[in-house]
Design a protein around this nucleic acid. Structure first.
Lengths: 211, 211
DNA sequence: CACAATAACATACTTTTGTCTGTTATCATA
DNA sequence: TATGATAACAGACAAAAGTATGTTATTGTG
């Protein structure tokens, strides 16, 4: 290929690698070579070596297609979307899973799931019927957080409020009453960390993740 | 490895492949072989061939690590998140990009971007100040859709309404007036296809996607 | 138990891929 | 325009990976 100013081709190769890797297709050195119309493998290789040296890529040693993104935020995981939260010690039964939605999670192994909301009791908080809330079930819950709670087997989304020794669950809609459940009938399932509303038909990912 | 009942090992291999592929690391035939403690390459290969035959995997012919998930909904792309929509023929200036958010897009090459909403004029539609709307800029806009429009260089999110020969933009908050812009000062930028609200700090992906 | 289908194995061959050594061309800067 | 750094090229070799052929063992079913 034509000679370029120092750094130009390298940046282009980085962009190419990033695109391919995010797409789940790690290229070979020779694929980079041909993608950039280079006549020597070494031309591509030395650029890739430099990108690794600069920390812009990492390499799994000794493996083919071994270049990876160092990015820690790369974990675009799939969270299960449940139609309702089942009773019992919290683990989602496979039968309840509607599908999977992509989320972005920096820390590993957190129990995040999606829940489809019923009713309009949180309307004033911008959570409408049919919306999906993403819930972290391991989260600590604080005053004012929006939480998913289970009262006597019924799942509900409300604002969390501690009053003296009791816990109150506040709706955000004047038409609904404040809930003051007895402690023994209340389970806080998790904290709502995100609200999503799909205004167009979306093909949810339907296949399970792994084992 | 020990003989298993027909289908059992195959399912396990499928799970393994799916997990690896979603993680962006396509395995080789021999990696499958060793992962399952097989003593022959062909043992793994014939299972993989069968998975391809059954349509559970697809294979890029002639390439190493060439197995892929057939899932068309697999394209978890990154959409740019802009703080405001710039004027001019619509292309997003790189300087305006706050970050990138993962989206799920079945069709290829659609211009989808995220926009952070200012103001509470759409409160009753569950779109609050600070929310992110995902916008498809190539979409056809119909009566009742929520759209992003530009009036005289100002960006706004409103409900689209065609009245006779005019276009009206309806807020969803009684405190705001209906907008009846003159056609020459109005540009419909796109249709809102999703609403997101992050209730926790989220590390947006900060690196650019590709050229 | 006979028999077909599937699972697992053993070995060999070809292509792809990673890597190495050395050379030539262009860029940037003094 | 001289010089060091970077970019690109050329050719070769070894390891990794894809693929093929043939064989043996186990499963499922009548």
């Amino acid at each position: 290929m034509a000679y370029t100013k120092p750094g130009v081709t390298r940046d282009r190769i980085y962009q190419f690698m990033r695109e391919q890797l995010l797409n789940g297709e790690p290229p070979t050195v020779r694929e980079v070579q041909t993608a950039f119309h280079m006549r020597a493998v070494q031309s591509a290789k030395s650029h890739l070596d430099a990108l690794v040296r600069d920390g812009r890529l990492i390499k799994v040693p000794g493996k083919s297609r071994g270049y990876r993104l160092p990015d820690p935020t790369r974990s675009n995981r799939l969270a299960p979307l449940v139609g309702r939260v089942p009773a019992g010690p919290f683990n989602i039964a496979v039968q309840e899973i509607e599908g999977y939605i992509p989320i972005q999670s920096n820390s590993e192994e957190q129990t995040i799931f999606g829940l489809r909301v019923s009713g309009d009791s949180m309307m004033d908080a911008g959570i409408l019927h049919g919306d999906i809330v993403l819930v972290r079930s391991s989260a600590e819950v604080q005053q004012g957080d929006i939480v998913v709670a289970m009262i006597d087997g019924e799942t509900t989304v409300k604002e969390f409020c501690r009053v003296k020794n009791r816990i109150e669950l506040l709706p955000r809609n004047d038409a609904y009453p404040v809930l003051s459940p007895r402690p023994e009938e209340l389970t806080i399932i998790g904290k709502v960390i995100e609200v999503r509303r799909y205004l167009e038909t979306v093909n949810l990912i339907s296949e399970p993740l792994n084992d």
